[in-house]
Design a protein around this nucleic acid. Structure first.
Length: 268
DNA sequence: CGAGCATGGTGAC
DNA sequence: TCACCCTGCTCGA
């Protein structure tokens, strides 16, 4: 689940539910119990997301830094009993936020928060973000473009799905050396990410298929992706490209699955 | 019911 | 480049 759009959505949900409110904090599973005790009964200022990092800021200079990792999840819902392994629970009479399986959940402060953010590249979901900062890094790297897009110190918030999909939509070969990307290509890629991720944040899922390429528009039977959104190539290896019908390819790159259409994203 | 896998990242070598 | 972490889901026996 968690690419940048999910974390920004969570930050919004947490802020709406808890900003300015005293909250009960606990760790039913126990691994955050000592920290939870320190926070219990305190007031939350706001929650903030940068890239895939989530910061829950309390009114007394305490910050909970959360990183969901690959399998972590957080939900904000009406009150309900604890089910399964809950690392962190934040609750009022009206809302309960449950954190499960995070890669990291640490109690820190504003200085550590700023230091963490300083190590991240620009985030397409941040209206103040400066895409030039990312291009400066990107166009000096010989690594494949697909590898650089996942480097959070270059670009913050993009994960495996957005990587595959934005490269497809831009017709770019994933293995293109990053330093071959022109400023105009980067500009279009960034703008596309901004639009896709904003929509993903709003919808809570990743949809990347343009209206003219939906199965309905192409005169094909409707299909269902097994991860909640409509996409061109992510996890569609061996199935026909929605645009040209060529089987979608998959390979491993730096330990992550990479998907692309060899026809729509030709080498050059 | 166990194995394998996943939209991520770290630390050791 | 690899082992490993964390949880929950799916798939095959």
């Amino acid at each position: 689940m968690p690419e940048g759009h999910i974390l920004h959505r969570l930050a919004d949900q947490l802020t709406t539910a808890f900003a300015g409110r005293r909250v009960a904090v606990s760790s039913p599973q126990g691994r955050f119990a000592a920290e939870a005790l320190l926070l219990d009964g305190h007031t939350i200022d706001r929650a903030r997301a940068v890239g895939k990092h989530l910061f829950v800021e309390f009114d007394d200079e305490r910050v909970v830094h959360i990183h969901l990792g690959l399998i972590g999840r957080m939900t904000v819902e009406p009150p309900h009993p604890v089910v399964g392994q809950v690392r962190l629970r934040i609750a009022t009479e009206a809302y309960v936020a449950d954190l499960r399986g995070p890669q990291g959940c640490r109690l820190t402060g504003p200085a550590a928060e700023e230091a963490m953010i300083a190590r991240l590249g620009p985030d397409p979901l941040d209206p103040q973000a400066d895409p030039e900062r990312a291009y400066d890094r990107l166009h000096r790297s010989h690594r494949p473009l697909a590898a650089v897009l996942l480097d959070q110190s270059v670009l913050a918030g993009v994960g495996n799905v957005y990587r595959a999909e934005v490269l497809f939509r831009q017709g770019l070969d994933p293995l293109l050396p990053a330093d071959d990307l022109t400023p105009a290509q980067w500009s279009r890629l960034w703008a596309d990410l901004v639009g896709l991720m904003a929509e993903g944040c709003r919808a809570g899922r990743i949809d990347t298929v343009r209206p003219e390429h939906t199965p309905e528009a192409m005169g094909r039977p409707p299909r269902v992706d097994d991860h909640g959104g409509e996409v061109y190539v992510y996890r569609r290896a061996g199935r026909p490209c929605l645009v040209c019908g060529t089987p979608v390819r998959r390979r491993e790159l730096a330990g992550r699955n990479l998907y692309w259409c060899p026809t729509c994203q030709p080498e050059r």
